[in-house]
């Protein structure tokens, strides 16, 4: 079954730049997909369309049965609760501990305290940071910080995890550490993962589905693909 369906999508920004031209694709539930391409290829815009940070100028974006393009601003939170998002810059709150950072996501949606505790500890265990719950983000390595961000993204059991260059700030070892965590989540939780990256090594090693974008056009959508120029 398809979790995401993108039909005839075009995205033109207000400044006249067109980031995506006539994009058509479908992503199956439970898959792990890389979105690759050079800068300006439309990777980030594609991810942004999926979590309704941007609206398509034309076409349909359906995520988990929800027509994202038609979603009113007021109702965006309904979509966001169904997915997790991870960024290159982690976006953690420095004044909160690891535990509090992850719990924050559940507090915001009004979850009960005891349920928060159970879910947060489970998420932190899944990313291998159960021993760092009381640390502050500044005391962690980049890889660990990104894993906290991943824990926050998956704590509400989303069907879909979007990652926009999650390894962009990390050295190869830490990158692999993060990728291992993502692969585990994909396997054990069945979470669909879409990850925009330009890290060749990771894409070639992981042998996952690959969507290649170039200047806003879909060039290739390959099962078990590699990063080919």
């Amino acid at each position: 079954m398809d979790l995401i369906r993108v039909k005839n999508v075009e995205k033109r920004y207000k400044n006249g730049v067109t980031a995506i031209y006539d994009l058509n694709l479908a992503i199956e539930k439970g898959s792990f997909v890389f979105v690759i391409g050079g800068s300006g290829s439309g990777k980030s815009t594609f991810i942004k369309l999926l979590y309704r940070e941007e609206k398509p100028t034309k076409g349909q974006v359906i995520v988990g049965g929800l027509d994202v393009a038609k979603l009113k601003n007021k109702k965006v939170y309904k979509l966001r609760r169904k997915l997790g998002i991870v960024f290159q810059d982690y976006r953690l709150l420095p004044k909160l501990t690891v535990y509090e950072n992850v719990a924050f996501a559940l507090e915001c949606i009004g979850e009960k305290k005891d349920i928060i505790r159970i879910k947060v500890l489970k998420a932190l265990e899944d990313v291998g940071l159960k021993n760092k719950v009381h640390e502050y983000p500044d005391h962690l390595s980049g890889g660990e910080q990104q894993r906290v961000a991943i824990a926050r993204a998956i704590v509400n059991d989303p069907k879909l995890l979007l990652c926009d260059e999650p390894t962009g700030n990390l050295d190869p070892d830490m990158s692999m550490e993060v990728m291992k965590v993502l692969e585990d989540i994909n396997k054990t939780r069945g979470t669909t993962i879409i990850m925009a990256t330009h890290d060749k090594e990771i894409v070639n090693k992981m042998k996952k589905q690959v969507i290649t974008l170039k200047d806003g056009h879909l060039v290739k959508f390959k099962q078990k693909g590699t990063y080919a120029e």
Partner: peptide, 8 residues
């Protein structure tokens, strides 16, 4: 972050 995690 609140917006990202789906706070209304």
């Amino acid at each position: 972050i609140m917006r990202l995690v789906g706070a209304s």
